[in-house]
């Protein structure tokens, strides 16, 4: 990758974000601080989007094939989710953690750069490629944000002894949106699979884990109907769901059940 100095460029974004977060958190009653903070965070996000665009143009294919490339998308969506939900719900800890997680994924990309490889196997030449993966990553961003709420709630309950029921509404909000994207991603995948591999569902390990992820969040949603599950139990379900999600996203390639998966494009 010769066109851009990835570590320099992204480190700059990280610095802008740290400054932005400081402005937002410290003395945010002052209008100036809050505006500057938000502005810095937005500039960082726009810079990331610019980076992704350059990558797309230079690779001559959608940058969605390798884990490194999907991490970049994830960083963008997670930071956007962080901002939008912060503006709506006003939780500073939520803003801080979502930007930190987004930043963590950028750092992962700096430490483990990928072979930026132009070739794309024929099965990925499809109109479904971009919607399937993008919808999935938006959903991952929303659902991981919901797990941030879950961990915070569990921490507050067990360590501080009291938790906020408002924050659970935030979690519900994130899960509903995230689950709707997750469902779309899953079904787009099924429709694509029929075109590419001849059947809409073959229980390929990645599909199995995608189904497991979907099921856990389905349990959460049902558990929140009329408080069917206790709030605490629901938060545990959310935390557990995120572990399954992470296995689905990153871990599947390392599981013994993944001998012949069609979803491992980046092993070479």
């Amino acid at each position: 990758m010769e066109w851009i100095n990835f570590p320099m460029y992204t480190s700059f974004i990280l610095i802008i974000w740290v400054l932005g977060l400081l402005f937002v958190t410290i003395n945010s009653k002052q209008r100036f601080n809050s505006t500057t903070g938000n502005l810095l965070l937005i500039i960082g996000v726009l810079m990331l989007i610019a980076l992704l665009s350059v990558l797309w143009i230079n690779l001559e294919r959608p940058p969605l094939r390798t884990l490194g490339e999907t991490r970049l998308w994830y960083s963008i969506f997670l930071s956007v989710v962080g901002l939008i939900f912060y503006w709506r719900w006003k939780y500073k800890w939520f803003l801080a953690v979502s930007f930190s997680m987004s930043g963590l994924f950028i750092i992962l990309n700096i430490i483990y750069p990928e072979n930026f490889n132009k070739s794309l196997m024929p099965a990925l030449h499809s109109g479904w490629f971009v919607p399937h993966v993008v919808v999935y990553i938006i959903s991952y961003a929303l659902l991981s944000a919901s797990s941030i709420v879950a961990v915070k709630q569990l921490y507050d309950t067990y360590v501080k002894g009291k938790s906020s029921s408002n924050a659970i509404s935030l979690a519900d909000n994130l899960v509903y949106l995230g689950f709707s994207f997750l469902t779309m991603g899953l079904l787009f995948g099924a429709l694509w699979a029929k075109e590419a591999w001849g059947h809409y569902w073959t229980w390929d390990p990645k599909e199995t884990w995608a189904f497991l992820t979907w099921s856990v969040y389905l349990i959460y949603i049902h558990g929140r109907i009329k408080d069917s599950l206790k709030e605490n139990t629901a938060m545990w379900v959310l935390a557990f769901g995120f572990i399954i999600l992470l296995i689905c996203w990153f871990g599947v390639n390392y599981l013994p059940s993944t001998a012949n998966s069609v979803h491992t494009y980046s092993k070479t």
Binding site: R88, W89, K90, S165, N166, S169, D172, N173, V175, Y176, L177, F179, S180, F181, T183, M184, L187, A190, L191, Y200
Partner: peptide, 27 residues
Amino acid sequence: VYAGIFMMLAGAVFMFWVGSKKKVKHN
């Protein structure tokens, strides 16, 4: 099965609608 898939997709759109309209309870 496709009919079922499209019904689920419609359901997902409904859920997106509900999820984004979810009431904000502020103290």
